[in-house]
Amino acid sequence: MRGETRTGFAFPWAGAIWFPGPQPMQAVDFSGRSVLRFRTRGDGRAYAVMLFGAGAAATVPPMVPFAAGPEWAVVEIPLESFATADPSIIAGLAFVTPAPLGSFAFELDDVEVR
């Protein structure tokens, strides 16, 4: 993914979102699983994963940072790292560049919840 974040929005960010359910924002029960795992590479900037819940828990999504260096690397993030997240109602995972503003480039592959 290549792009650019600019001023003019209250919460500028850009990236990609993965909906694990059959429809966007339909919750999937990942109880009994404990780790988000994916491969990434990029421009060396800091990025973040946002975890979206469904229903009443769909408030400000918790975020966990990760780095996307020039070589492919495996990133594993324990689900418990997402403060306030409930693994039984995961509706989406967004891989984003929250800051700073400007150009960015990163790639993702093999996204899974284990």
Rank of each mutant, 00 (worst) to 15 (best):
M1A: 10
M1H: 13
E4Q: 15
T5K: 09
R6L: 14
F9S: 14
A10N: 11
F11R: 15
P12M: 02
A14Q: 11
A14I: 06
G15N: 02
G15W: 01
I17D: 04
I17T: 13
I17F: 10
W18V: 11
P20S: 03
P20H: 03
P20Y: 01
G21I: 03
G21V: 04
G21Y: 03
P22A: 12
Q23R: 14
Q23A: 15
P24G: 01
P24E: 01
Q26L: 08
A27I: 06
V28Q: 13
F30V: 02
G32Q: 02
G32I: 04
R33Q: 13
S34I: 05
V35S: 11
V35Q: 09
V35H: 10
L36H: 05
R37V: 14
R39I: 05
R39W: 09
T40K: 03
R41E: 00
G42C: 02
D43S: 05
D43Y: 02
R45E: 15
A48R: 05
A48G: 04
V49H: 01
F52R: 10
A54W: 04
A54M: 06
A56R: 14
A58E: 12
T59M: 12
P61E: 00
P61Q: 00
P61A: 01
P62A: 09
P62M: 09
M63V: 11
M63L: 10
V64L: 02
F66M: 04
F66G: 01
A67I: 12
A68Q: 05
A68V: 10
G69E: 15
E71K: 14
E71R: 14
A73L: 04
V74G: 07
V75C: 07
E76L: 07
E76V: 07
E80C: 08
E80R: 13
S81L: 05
S81N: 09
F82G: 01
F82A: 02
A83E: 13
A83M: 11
T84E: 10
T84F: 09
D86P: 08
P87Q: 14
S88G: 11
A91R: 04
L93P: 00
V96D: 00
T97G: 15
P98F: 10
P98T: 13
P100Y: 09
G102Y: 11
F104A: 05
F104G: 03
A105S: 13
F106S: 00
F106T: 01
E107P: 07
L108V: 04
D109K: 01
V111I: 11
V111D: 04
